[in-house]
Each structure stands twice: as C-alpha cells, then as structure tokens.
C-alpha cells in the first residue's frame, strides 16, 4: 500500500463520512481505551500513540486503561462486558488470535463474535537473530545445524505463547527443525541471554532488536515479514532465505464490544484513518519498525479469523498449551 493510495482512501473516507450527522455527536464524554497489557510493551506504545492523537481529533479525552493479565485475556474479557456505546474500546494484537488456543475462554468471550472490529492500526514483523559467535551465517546454515543436532540449538523466547515463541514455533514447523526452547519472562531477559551467548537463536520483535543488530551484538539472518524491512534493507526475508511461505508479523488494532452503533464505528474509522497517516504517527511508527495497516472493517474481521486459523495450527503442533 503506497502512501498515495492511503491518502486517497483517507480523503474518500473523509468525504463519505462528513454527511453522517449522528456520528458527529459522538463522543460526548471521555472514551476509555483498554490496553490488555502492562505499560511499556508494544501494545501500550502503539495504543498510547494512537490515543493521544485520536483524542485531539475527537475533541474528548481518551483514557488509557492498562488491564493486564493472562496474556491479555483479563483486559479483553473486561472489554467484552463493557456497554456497547462506543465509550469502551480495546487495543488488540496477535495475542488476541492466539489466546483462544492457549486459554480456555469458554464462558468468557469469543474473540470474533464478542467484538465489533473497528480498525487495524499497524503491523511489525519479527526478526531471526543469532549470537554473532554462532556458526550459522544464514537461514540455510541454521536449518542445517539444527537438523544435525535436533533439540540442541538453544532458542530463547519471551515466554510460552509469546510472539517470540510463536515465530520460532512456526519456523520449526515450516523448516522441519527442532530447537531447544528456553522460555524467559519477557523479551528483554531473553535477548540479554542471546547477546551473552548462553542461548544462540531468537525470533525477536524487530522493534526491540534493531539497536543490537546495528551495533553487531546480534546477527540478523532474516526478517519475518513478506517484504524486507526498510530499517534492515540488507537482511532477506525468512521466506526468501530458505523457508518459503514463512510470515510472522505482530499486528495491532482497535475493537469495541459487539453491537456498537455503526455511526460510532464510522466516526472512529474516519478519525483513525486520519491519525494513522499523520506525520507524527508515521514518523514514530517508522522509528519503531512498524508499518501502518489499513483495512476495511470486513477485511479486518477476515484478517483476524485467518490469523486465528494460522496460529491454531502452530500452537497445536508445538504443544504450546500446557495441560
């Protein structure tokens, strides 16, 4: 999607929606934006960035409410029970599509049916990095090494079911290899262990890893997006480097409890579209290694469903869900 087409779409959306008078009345009081993760994580950074810009557009304060717990399930469940008046919104990410396979959500919420999709916000790929002293210089060599000694190459993740775990599990599945999975409490400690050489491999989020790659403390073998990242133009995608079809991208979006009035959805979509392409936001996304993600409401819903199907296979194949 080029910037020009984004702009065109934005303008079109603007024109189409200025006529909807009802939506203009919304909001009449502050809007609560639930972020189901603690402050400081990627969901929080993306959510707060959008919130600060969006509240200027809406003319009402957007109150960021971090409700973390159980990989996002606690905050998501809370949002699903909120009044469907558009005054409670929820930031979701890839975790939303994975949690149904990790947790028993029966009687709590349905990731698709309990929510009305509002808008996709952004996406950011993972990156496959190894300790610079490790023998593999590219994806092919890594696969060969892992095949030679199955279950021996130390792979650090940010914890069971994390994005870093998912990316590695997908790699294992598609490349037909088996690493020694070493889970950590969070991406920071895991990265420290790989930089130090106690573990060799990590499927880290691009945002957090770029500085280490640029300073030579980690070697990047491939990025998990469909295209190369402008931040690391020399690093091939994992798909082109030896695992065809590999894609592990984290994404963020905003949803509301199911049944929110369409006028509210339209108003929010219109303003989010403007906010997403505001220079401040574009600049910060670029620094964070994230790309703006814009989809129609229906496409966003379909995307969530396809992500759920994709990760269900990975979770089940890897035995990620603990009994």
């Amino acid at each position: 999607m080029t910037i020009r087409s984004l702009l065109l779409k934005t303008v079109a959306a603007l024109l189409a929606l200025t006529t909807v008078a009802a939506a203009q009345q919304y909001p009449t009081k502050p809007v609560r934006l639930i972020i189901p993760f603690p402050p400081g994580g990627s969901n929080d950074v993306v959510g707060r960035l959008i919130a600060s810009q969006l509240s200027e557009r809406l003319g009402r304060q957007i109150i960021v409410d971090n409700r973390s717990g159980a990989g996002g399930v606690v905050g998501t469940e809370l949002a699903s029970q909120a009044p469907k008046d558009g005054y409670t919104l929820l930031v979701i990410s890839i975790a939303h599509a994975v949690n149904p396979w990790l947790y028993d959500l029966k009687g709590r919420y349905d990731p698709l049916k309990s929510f009305t999709p509002i808008a996709a916000l952004a996406s950011g790929p993972n990156v496959l990095v190894v300790n610079p002293g490790f023998a593999a210089n590219n994806v092919q060599e890594l696969i060969a090494l892992a095949k030679k000694s199955p279950g021996k190459v130390g792979w650090a993740s940010a914890g069971v079911g994390s994005f870093q775990h998912l990316g590695g599990a997908l790699f294992e599945l598609q490349a037909g290899v088996n690493f020694l999975h070493v889970p950590f409490k969070g991406g920071g400690p895991a990265m420290i262990d790989v930089v130090a050489g106690h573990n060799q491999v990590m499927f880290s989020s691009l945002v957090q890893t770029t500085p280490q790659i640029q300073s030579g403390k980690l070697r990047a073998l491939g990025v998990g997006g469909l295209k190369r990242s402008p931040i690391l133009p020399k690093v091939p995608t994992i798909a082109e480097a030896g695992v065809p079809g590999y894609e592990a991208t984290n994404w963020w979006g905003i949803v509301a409890p199911a049944g929110v009035p369409q006028a509210v959805v339209d108003r929010l979509r219109k303003e989010i579209a403007v906010v997403q392409t505001a220079p401040v936001v574009l600049e910060q996304f670029a620094k964070e290694g994230a790309d703006v993600l814009q989809m129609s409401q229906a496409d966003f819903a379909a995307y969530m469903a396809s992500e759920m199907a994709k990760w269900e296979k990975v979770v089940k194949a890897s035995g990620m869900k603990a009994e």
């Binding site: 402050p39 400081g40 920071g188 280490q212 403390k217």
Partner: peptide
C-alpha cells in the same frame, strides 16, 4: 549495551 534489565529500563529504551 542498550539492554533492558527491567521493565522501567525497557521503557526508557
């Protein structure tokens, strides 16, 4: 090193 030792440090990074 640019490595976060804790949540606060990750936020500063």
């Amino acid at each position: 090193l640019g490595l976060p030792a804790s949540g606060v440090m990750a936020l500063m990074l």
